[in-house]
Each structure stands twice: as C-alpha cells, then as structure tokens.
Simulated assay, not measured.
Amino acid sequence: MKILITGAAGQLGSTLVSFLFGAHEVIPLTRAELDITNPNRVKETILMHRPDVIIHTAAYTDVDMSEKHADTAFHINAFGTRNIAEAAELVGAKLVYISSDYVFDGMKKEPYIESDCPSPINIYGSTKLLGEKFVELYCSKHFVVRTAWLYGMGQRSFVNTIYKLARSQNEISVVTDCYGSPTYVMDLAAFITELLSKENYGIYHVVNEGVCSRFELAQAIVQEMGFDHVQVRPILSHQFEQSALRPANSALACAAIRMNGLTPLRDWRSALQAYMGNLKQSDEGGLFSGH
C-alpha cells in the first residue's frame, strides 16, 4: 500500500514510519512539509501522492496551552483534520485519525467503551472530538483511533518525565485520583499496522489492557527501574496546578477490537516493563540523562 503519514516527526508518526517502511510505500510528511491548516495545500499534496491510506497523527497536543490558545488548537486539531478528511475522500483513501481519551468527561466509574457519549471538559478534548465529527462526516472509509497516556522513546510523556525526576530526586509527588490507560507507542503502532488492511470502519479504543492511576503508574516506573530510594508521594489533583481540567477517569475499554476479531494490546504493566528495559539500554548513551 501507499501510506501517507502526517505529523511524521512526532512520537507516533515517527514510530509508524519505522514500522511500515519497507513493507509499504511510505510518504512521511512533517509539519514543515505539510501545513494541514491550509486546505489548498492539503488537497494538492493528497492529489499529487494519491495514497491508499492516510494516517493522520499531526495535532496540537499541549493540553494546558490549548486553554490559552484555543483558536490555534481548533484550527489544527479540528479544521486541519477536516481538510485531511475531505482530501482523503477525494482520492478514495482510508483515513486513520488519532483521537484521545480526553473526549470524555471522566464521570463514569468504569472504563469508557466506544459507544459512550463524549463530553469533553477541556479545550483539547473539544478540538479532538470536533476532529472526529469531521472525519465521520467527510470521509466514508475512516478509522477513529482513541488512545491515551501515550509514551515512547525520546519524546515528552508522563512516563519519561517520572523517569527523569526519579534520577535526580528522592521524592516525587503524583496525583492519585486520576485514572487512565497507559499506552506504549510501539504497541499502538503495531495495532494500526494490523488495522490498515481491514475495512471494519468506525471508532476504536486502542490502549494497553488495564487501568491504573497516575500514582500507580509512577510507582511501577520506579519499581521497574530499581529506584528503591525514591518515594512516590500521593497528592490530589486539586493540589497540582494546571490550566486545563483533566477527566478523573479516562480509562478506555477496547470493545471494538474484540468485536472485529483484531489483536488486543498486552496489559499495561507488561508493556511498561518492556519499555523500561529498552529505556535502560538507551539511557546508557545519555538519551534521558539531560546531557
């Protein structure tokens, strides 16, 4: 297949490029190479390449800055996505749109399933939900992939932040009343690779199996790295100052994966263990040491 990837320099985009390169014709486009907010440029680019699949990972992902720069967040996440969806339909391409757990308000006690009604409580979640609506409206062959708490090598994430803090501090304060589903970017990329050949269009929740709090995730990171001297101290979310509200529970249940006979992701603890093993090897070269 000919596969065009937007946001190819980002965490998921770059991982997908490495996953798909060789087996498929991959067209990786960074923000500098494709401004998704320019509808004419998007249309010209898609018509020039005529991909079979577009994986749309480009996004404005700073949750707190989205509150301060709402126009920019909507321009990129919602209307930029509309431009991609319209162009995908124009050439008959399948479209994989990467969405977020933050489309939910966090009031549900159990993990959210694909049919639950979204109700975002922050600007970022609102922009991603509007992006979903545009994809559903403008592109007939679409996959909406909602994921959460994504982490991977060399990119900013909660996992990497906790790891770096644990290297330099004996005590870390982490919120204990915020629950979700950690997702290893390699596992997400592997699932998307499987999804590309399917035609079971619609919404998919794609996260590593299981639920944990931010506090529990931080504890697991410290344990995996053998940082016995580091104490993870529980605090409540209202004690941690942030511009944007976060859903108290944004855990996702992957019902659509099973319903469509696709491969579920492994449990979050096994995925974290695999990642931390890779991180230890990579950090021997100072990748996360700050040097």
Rank of each mutant, 00 (worst) to 15 (best):
I3A: 12
L4Y: 14
T6D: 01
A9R: 12
L12D: 01
G13V: 06
S18E: 14
F19M: 14
G22Q: 09
P28M: 08
R31I: 08
A32T: 10
I36M: 05
N38W: 14
M48D: 13
I55P: 10
T57Y: 08
T57D: 07
T57V: 13
D62W: 12
V63K: 00
D64T: 09
A70F: 01
A78S: 14
A85K: 02
E86R: 15
K94H: 09
G106Q: 08
M107I: 13
I121S: 04
I123H: 04
T127Y: 12
E132L: 10
E132T: 01
C139N: 13
T147Y: 03
G152V: 06
M153A: 15
N160Q: 06
L165E: 14
A166G: 11
V175D: 10
D177A: 00
C178V: 15
G180S: 15
P182W: 06
A189S: 14
F191V: 05
I203D: 02
I203Y: 07
V207F: 03
R214L: 15
L217N: 01
A220G: 11
I221D: 13
E224A: 10
M225N: 03
G226R: 11
P234H: 00
I235K: 11
S237C: 09
Q239T: 03
L245C: 12
N249M: 06
A255L: 15
N260A: 09
R269Y: 00
S270V: 12
S270Q: 15
A271G: 05
M276N: 07
M276K: 06
Q281G: 07
G286Y: 03
L287D: 11
